[in-house]
Amino acid sequence: MKSSAYSRSYRFLHYGLLAFYVIFALFPLYWLLKVSVTPNDLLYSEGIRLWPSRPSLAHYTFVLAHSDFPLFFKNSVIVSGSTAVLVTLVAALSGYAMSRFDFRGKMWLVGLMLVTQMFPLVMLVAPIFKLFSPLGLTNSLTGLVIVYTAFNVPFATFLMQSFFDGIPKDLEEAAMIDGASRFRAFQQIILPLTLPGVAATLGFVFTAAWSELLFALMLVSKAGASTFPVGLLSFVSKFSVDFGQMMAAGVLALIPACLFFLLIQRYLVQGLTAGAVKG
């Protein structure tokens, strides 16, 4: 009897705490959504109501039809998508090398990758600008893709390495004895087994690139090549009074990142677990 009472109150506490976390995590997002569907005339009078008495999609129509957001959105999708694919390719190779080879300079590489995580990135803006402008890489999406790829490779390498560590070495050795070269074994045996890891890395990098603001702001000055965050920020300063439209734009910016994240978060935990078991 006693133990069931204990477990009931424990369960109550467990669910109570989880409910708190869910509300804490979702409330700000919910508020974003709520303001974005509140018509302008109700914005102040119903400032702290939980749902407007007369929801409307007017802000969304405006943002989609009368602003540059569709263009920003397209730019962001191109930049984040290409970055995610490139980083995953590059990090799959280096993560594989870290997991499977012992080579001179490996510790230096690990050190280098760790130290890059400490850079105040602000400091790199001016030098990168100077390096890129003669190459025509400023004001271009390609330039952004290159920068984002470099910034994300170190963490993605560690992530991919932990996934590769979870796959027994025997498998590619068997493939090599079956007649495959190492690269072919990597491609046909190891990579297909690392698909969850690939998905996690893709998703992680996509979200990171999707939210990057500093370099998007500094390397790109013409509107045609601006990404969503820059567009949103310029929106904030331009129409600082129009909360509804800003939040509608914000909700739109959230959608791809959140979708991607919902798909991959499970693999993220798995991937880190696989690595942890080994280390």
């Binding site: 869910v22 995590a25 965050p229 959230l254 959140c258 919902l262 978060q265």
Partner: peptide, 15 residues
């Protein structure tokens, strides 16, 4: 629940 409570991480920082 896990997907929902992890969601804030996907929100762009500036947003």
């Amino acid at each position: 629940v896990q997907a929902l409570v992890f969601l804030p991480w996907a929100v762009p920082t500036f947003l």
